[in-house]
Simulated assay, not measured.
Amino acid sequence: MSSERKDDHLRLAGDQSRLPRSGAGFDDIAFVHHALAGIDVADVDLTVRMPGGRWDAPLLINAMTGGSDATGRVNRELAVAARETGLAIASGSVSIALGDPSVAGTFRVLRDENPDGYVLANLGVERSPDDARRAVDLLQADALQVHVNAVQEIVMPEGSRSFARWPASLEAIVAAVDVPVVVKEVGFGLSADTLALLTDLGVAAADVAGRGGTDFVQIENARRPEGGYEHLFGWGQTAVACLLEAPADAPVLIASGGVRSPLDVVRALALGARAVGVSGGFLRTALDGGAEALVAQIREWQAHVAALCALLGAATPDDLLHTDVIVGGETADFCRARGVDLAPWAVRSRAHRAETARRERSRHDR
């Protein structure tokens, strides 16, 4: 891994973030509007409990970069924005810093500029348990984000071609570190079967990171002089599809991949995500306007998420799980093919009221 590759990734991801995005599935989700269900915005509390600590809002500045002078400067802007808004923040893969201490500061700036914030270190699933501990120590991290990226590796000119040991490697990492492990796809989704396996391996949280956001097939294909992997563009599932088919005993879920607006954030929370990660949209703002512009954007998103929660009658993000959602389009087709019954999602508020009334009667009877 080289600093030049890190700069390539940043440049190509930045270019992608400026293009119109579609195909992430969020537009397949609509809320049933109940005109008298609203509450006061002042009564909405956006804080959420996550493995390893409390977050001030269900938003994450997701894994992006680090490993070169240019990416270190971007990380500083992101860290300042996280500090000023109270958002959790994840580093890009710190693997390069474990082999080249001269670039460690380009990652450590996330902690230096944000000493009291919730910081996730990021590392590839193939790394050793000792490397995992070193990654956590480098950032004094509150959690370790372990990325799984087989599709990216296949297209990457210098990528791995050996994936069979990944489950065992992940299990060893979970056992080795003293902080929660968050498994993150890099844009191709985590299926229900994968989420069930992650539960068995002791993973605390999973970022389903679906297609529709930053496309690492396109990024790595652009780095190949001859290209050739265009047939893999659009591979995988959306975050929306992953949330809808997630098993009940899945790890704590984070959603990312093509999140464009506060409405997408609320949609993901209503589908079962505890928090939502944003990369491309925040990166574009940081590149164009620095920390000041990103702080303004994040505060606007926080205000809009709170307003949408109030509109839907949700005093907390968890209360969004009782809202009624209609699933259509390609996402509905996916769910039918995978055996996901969508009918209960459309009447959740009714079911919640009935269950609340039943509990109240039971309490009085006692």
Rank of each mutant, 00 (worst) to 15 (best):
H352L: 00
H304E: 15
V136A: 04
A141N: 03
D112K: 09
D15P: 00
G328V: 03
V80P: 00
C242L: 05
I154G: 00
A135R: 06
G52T: 06
T316H: 14
W235T: 05
L12M: 07
S17D: 12
I254N: 00
H147S: 08
R366P: 02
G290C: 03
L271A: 01
R211I: 12
T214A: 11
L46V: 03
A337Y: 05
I39A: 05
G38W: 06
I326P: 00
V186A: 13
V340R: 08
G257C: 07
P157Y: 09
L308F: 12
D318E: 15
R49A: 15
W301M: 14
D7P: 04
C335P: 02
E226I: 00
S191I: 10
L201D: 03
S160C: 00
R49E: 15
V186H: 09
A346V: 03
D333T: 15
T238K: 06
P58F: 10
E185H: 07
A82R: 09
I89S: 02
A141Q: 07
F31H: 08
H231S: 14
G210L: 09
R133C: 11
F188S: 10
L123H: 02
A291L: 05
G67A: 09
N114P: 05
L78K: 06
I39S: 05
R18Q: 12
D319E: 14
G313A: 05
I254M: 13
G67E: 04
L60S: 02
A255M: 04
S93M: 10
E113M: 11
Q145N: 13
E84W: 02
L59R: 06
E360D: 13
A57S: 14
L269K: 10
I154W: 01
W301D: 09
V208N: 02
V44S: 03
V32L: 14
V44A: 04
W55K: 03
